[in-house]
Design a binder for these strands. Structure first.
Lengths: 118, 118
DNA sequence: TTAACACTTGACCAATCCATCAACTGACGC
DNA sequence: GCGTCAGTTGATGGATTGGTCAAGTGTTAA
């Protein structure tokens, strides 16, 4: 008999004590997954990493990212729908910024982890 | 003339100074986006939130999540490919745990943000 | 060596995502 | 009013994803 107890019968027997899984967590997971999904696209993340530095208008973003305006706008639309960014209109321009400091942290943490790989 | 200087001409004139965009960041963004994408699915995130507490084998995960084994295994396969989880075989069982503390933090931060919404 | 348990894998299909483009709105100057 | 710049929106279509299932591998006990 080894130190590792590995006996007969279905392994389910050992896991009978299925603790009444927290039902609230499901909602939290859904909302959190939605946020992560929004962050899980290179082009959207590049947008956000720029906005992490400072507020920028759409035209400026298209110049820095060298992409066309409707494409950028569609991505921003999704980020807005997920409440990751906020907007402010100033004359003809619409300025975008990160929604709050939590989002900024999340992005910073993610990028920090992405920097130290392989 | 208002306090907001909004004059004639293309707005690109004001953004000529397109700072030589950091090329390294693109790679970082790609890798980071991949991580976020892996986190951006409810079922996968539920798996990870369980593994954040403790190491668990696949059968135990299927019991807690009340899902079929191949489905869980497929999700774990993807998480393994993205290096978010590590495995350890013990007899017939394969135990999964989060890859490192960075991942654990990222998940914790995300869930914390998901908890405080609306 | 056979059987049973604990997974993993490949393949197929439905759903979902993302880029593109044309058409639209909104603000300003003339 | 009209035109122009700045940006948004809806629709379309191709690519990617995620669930499901049958068949596979690995380990252990008998």
């Amino acid at each position: 008999m080894s130190t590792i107890i590995e006996n007969e019968g279905d392994c389910r027997d050992e896991h009978q004590h299925v603790e009444a899984s927290e039902p609230a967590d499901l909602l939290v997971c859904e909302r959190t997954a939605n946020i992560f999904r929004a962050l899980g696209d290179v082009n959207r993340l590049r947008l956000l990493s720029l906005l992490a530095h400072r507020e920028m208008c759409v035209t400026e973003l298209t110049l820095v990212l060298r992409d066309n305006l409707p494409a950028i706008s569609q991505r921003l639309k999704l980020l807005r729908a997920e409440r990751l960014v906020r907007t402010r209109r100033q004359g003809k321009h619409v300025f975008y910024r990160l929604a709050d400091s939590h989002i900024a942290e999340l992005i910073a943490n993610g990028l920090a982890h992405g920097e130290e790989l392989d």
